[in-house]
């Protein structure tokens, strides 16, 4: 808590600087178009003040001002019915459900793989290199194809998107858990041996508890990355629903404010998901009696 307060002022300054740069960029980037409008309307006696105000009130600006984005988010969340197709809450929910499903499958798959890798030398030797190689394949880039193919195979809706998230999120879990399950020290393992503990007992009483902190650290990465997977997975579905669809529709129709508001909704969602995992981490570790 002390550290958070210690950092608060610098963070606020940095954020304030970013917002200031943003406003300056709004004026700079939107001015040419605004000047063009003035010229066409034969409006020659414009003032700088008026120009600045007008650049921040365009319908389809090159770069929308922060307050325009804020207003758009407010209008599409609070003032719209949640079930409406124009509500950002609805689109966020569509993305969130795919993210969570993919994250859950990915985490379970990752843990299962990690457990078998730790217990079988053959798995360790043969599968582990491919787990690492699997991530050098740009899956996000081929996500659209996978979605289309799965749709052709009769799988549609939530699952294809979730599978993209799964592919992305199982990796940090495998790597983190393999490290975690092997993090118990030699001396502790030897102690378990002197108790003549079975493999299962060693696993549940020693390996698993010492791997929990690693599990949460990798779940934080996994949940953020599975959100990215869900968003990209929504791009090719013909812009039906979800934050990715909002991005695509916005880019088709030049609705920059819509793009930015979807982007901010995604950012907010990512921050929430990561902090929920962080909170769970702290609660679980407290229950387990780990000192902070």
């Amino acid at each position: 808590m002390e550290r958070a307060r210690h950092n608060l002022f610098p963070i606020l300054v940095v954020v304030a600087v970013i917002v200031a740069i943003w406003y300056a960029a709004v004026v700079y980037l939107n001015a040419p178009w605004q000047l063009d409008i003035y010229q066409r309307a034969n409006n020659t006696d414009w003032t700088v003040r008026q120009l600045v105000v007008d650049t921040m009130a365009q319908d389809r600006p090159v770069l929308p001002a922060p307050h325009q984005v804020a207003v758009e988010i407010w209008q599409t969340t609070v003032e719209k019915n949640v079930t409406s197709k124009r509500s950002l809450v609805y689109h966020t929910w569509v993305t969130l459900s795919a993210t969570l499903l993919g994250f859950a499958i990915g985490t379970v798959l990752g843990v299962v793989l990690a457990v078998s890798i730790v217990h079988s030398r053959a798995m360790d030797k043969s599968v582990m290199p491919w787990v690492i190689a699997s991530q050098t394949i740009p899956i996000l880039a081929i996500a659209p194809m996978i979605i289309v193919v799965l749709n052709a195979a009769g799988l549609s809706g939530l699952l294809p998107k979730a599978l993209i998230s799964t592919y992305l999120s199982f990796f940090p879990v495998v790597v983190g858990m393999v490290k975690g399950l092997r993090s118990s020290e030699r001396i502790q393992l030897d102690l378990m041996r002197t108790y003549s503990a079975s493999t299962a007992q060693v696993f549940w009483k020693l390996r698993w508890p010492s791997a929990v902190p690693y599990l949460f650290a990798s779940m934080k990465i996994a949940v953020a990355i599975s959100l990215v997977g869900a968003i990209v997975g929504e791009l090719p579905t013909g812009a039906v629903a979800g934050l990715g669809a909002r991005l695509l529709a916005g880019s088709y129709y030049g609705q920059t404010i819509q793009i930015w508001s979807a982007l901010f909704a995604a950012a907010l969602l990512a921050a929430c998901l990561v902090s929920v995992v962080g909170l769970a981490n702290r609660l679980v570790l407290k229950r387990m009696g780990t000192r902070p």
Binding site: F9, P10, I11, V14, K220, I221, S251, A267, A270, A271
Partner: peptide
Amino acid sequence: QRGLLPVGNLVSALPMIGVAPIMVM
């Protein structure tokens, strides 16, 4: 450092791929 590091950490967890349509524009 104290100001930028938390912001940078947050941003690197964000779906930055979303800026693609804006950059194309």
